[in-house]
């Protein structure tokens, strides 16, 4: 346990004791956590729904979520915490892995997405299968090729740890450890990861200026990419078919698996381009290793005969090599080092 937390925790206990004028021994006496505001960066839209409407953010809820996020006990053999596939230095994506590694030498079927600005997302996962941040952890936690656990067993492990008793109490008022509290705490941590301090943001706030190459790349971005990767989140949360051939090993049809609608065949969620310099490899199956390969796909590789190809891509997006390199200069301005290095998001 971190000293700062301990001090705050002791302050709570003391203040509660003072308020009640009695010794605080029983878990029946609730403790009030330190509420934390959710700050929307300047100039950003309001999130489509308030993910914290029924899960009020608190310092203690966030800290509990962080401990859970980094705790291998959420997986069957202890080796696969959430953070094993969502690494802070990779903007909480999985660096260099097209498919992530799971329990018992297995692979996932998709590339682990980066985790930030989730409060602005309307659905999670590449196919939009997950409808709320709080229920997302159930998917990797129970998948046999990921954490391979079940909730009952995880809660059993958490209940054996005295630290968790204290932290659940600090976050939720009593020592009870249940699935709802565990999921809400994880949502508080992951939902609080905001990336809004890249060079791009500083330019927008008048604190920095683009180099000529970056500026040219930004102009190209607005002309060729912004139709799907809408500022300031750099995604419009839609599902689109960007003309990549079906991966014949995973046979992943994307959104269609969820909706059952043929129109959704090979459609995947438009990912945010923020921190894209850190989140390689790219696309839902990590098929491209470099941004150069990604741009080559849009420039010459799009399969224009696919019936569900997105209407914005029917003529591909031809780019010269100079345009591509300037676009990459711009994309690197979306890297948010302060988020990637923020000690609040690191294990304690």
């Amino acid at each position: 346990m971190r000293p700062g937390f301990l001090i705050r925790y002791l302050m709570f206990v003391t203040s509660t004791m003072m308020m009640l004028g009695a010794g605080e021994k029983h878990s029946g006496i609730p403790i009030t956590p330190t509420w934390m505001p959710f700050r929307i960066p300047a100039g950003w839209p309001k999130p489509p729904t308030d993910i914290f409407a029924k899960n009020r953010l608190s310092e203690q809820g966030f800290e509990l979520g962080r401990k859970l996020f980094y705790d291998g006990r959420l997986s069957k053999d202890g080796n696969f915490p959430c953070a094993s596939c969502h690494q802070q230095f990779a903007a909480f994506a999985n660096i260099e892995h097209d498919f992530s590694h799971g329990f018992n030498n297995t692979f996932t079927k998709r590339n682990a997405p980066a985790l930030f600005n989730i409060a602005w997302m309307t659905a999670l996962h590449w196919d939009g299968s997950i409808n709320h941040i709080e229920v997302q952890p159930l998917a990797p936690l129970t998948a046999p090729n990921e954490m391979a656990e079940n909730i009952d067993s995880v809660l059993g492990k958490l209940r054996k740890d005295k630290d968790y008793h204290n932290m659940f109490k600090a976050a939720f008022g009593t020592t009870e450890i249940n699935s709802q509290r565990m999921l809400k705490a994880l949502a508080q941590f992951v939902g609080s990861i905001i990336s809004s301090n890249s060079k791009y943001d500083k330019v927008k706030n008048g604190e920095a200026t683009f180099t000529p190459n970056e500026q040219n790349g930004y102009d190209l971005f607005r002309a060729k990419c912004a139709g799907c990767h809408k500022e300031p989140l750099f995604t419009d949360n839609s599902f689109r078919n960007n003309g990549m051939p079906l991966n014949i090993y995973t046979n992943d049809i994307g959104r269609m698996k969820i909706t059952g609608d043929k129109q959704d065949s090979l459609k995947f969620k438009v990912p945010s381009l923020r921190n894209i310099g850190l989140t390689y490899p790219y696309m839902h199956d990590g098929r491209f290793t470099t941004l150069g390969q990604v741009l080559e796909h849009y420039s010459t590789g799009i399969q224009i005969n696919q019936p569900n190809l997105d209407s914005l891509l029917r003529k591909r997006q031809p780019m010269t090599s100079r345009e591509k390199s300037n676009l990459i200069y711009f994309l690197y301005t979306l890297t948010d080092t302060s988020m990637v290095k923020n000690p609040r998001f690191a294990p304690h």
């Binding site: 409808n131 709320h132 709080e134 229920v135 159930l138 699935s179 709802q180 809400k184 949502a187």
Partner: peptide, 14 residues
Amino acid sequence: RNCTGAQSGALDPM
């Protein structure tokens, strides 16, 4: 209740 996050009691995902 299907789309507003983690529930408890009878609706616990457990």
